[in-house]
Nucleic acid binder design. Structure first.
Length: 167
DNA sequence: CGGGTTTGACCTGCGC
DNA sequence: GCGCAGGTCAAACCCG
């Protein structure tokens, strides 16, 4: 079993965005997953970069839509894993619909959509050019259906992510 | 044949 | 308005 970390960043609805992290290996063993922000910071040197991205997005949403509380929330989560494989088995089926090279990154970014009918959840997968063992995954949207293939791996953490975002 | 991937073209938002 | 960068489309292709 590979030893890699999951970084989970709270989306636009959190104020300020909360950051939690799971040790994926422990997670796979079925133990408690989510640790606290403070623990993350000492373990993950790339935390700041991604955290800033999410914060700025959150602020943009607020700034652009202030005064309108009927706005659809944009559910967007980013986390990174330390892994040799790009594609994590998170229990959902994904169809790749694009790939782009990104500036200042030697690795391309891949674009995926959930294959379930009427479910337009998207995700992006990109390898960190500074540390090519790190894979950054960004999810956007909430699945309108249960996981199609039950894998203990991610069902739990995805549920946590969604619950968190609805607070 | 059905479903997924590849890949260049196209679209769009943003900074200058 | 222009050009760049990122995101998406879709035709061709691949594979069980």
């Amino acid at each position: 079993m590979e030893n890699y970390h999951i970084l989970f960043l709270g989306g636009a609805s959190a104020s300020p965005p909360s950051i939690t992290m799971a040790n994926h290996q422990r997670y796979l063993q079925g133990n408690d997953v989510i640790t606290t922000t403070t623990k993350v910071e000492s373990k993950c040197e790339n935390l700041d970069v991604i955290a800033k991205d999410v914060v700025s997005e959150s602020q943009e949403l607020k700034a652009g839509k202030k005064g309108d509380n009927k706005v659809m929330r944009k559910h967007k989560y980013a986390f990174q894993t330390r892994s040799q494989v790009d594609i994590l088995d998170d229990g959902y089926r994904w169809r790749k619909y694009g790939q782009k090279t990104v500036k200042n990154s030697k690795f391309p970014r891949s674009y995926y959509r959930c294959t379930h009918k009427e479910c337009n959840v998207k995700k992006q997968v990109q390898r960190n050019s500074k540390d090519n063992e790190i894979v950054v995954t960004t999810y956007e949207g909430i699945h309108t259906h249960p996981v199609e293939k039950f894998t203990e791996n991610f069902e739990h953490i995805l549920r946590q992510m969604q619950t968190f975002n609805h607070l």
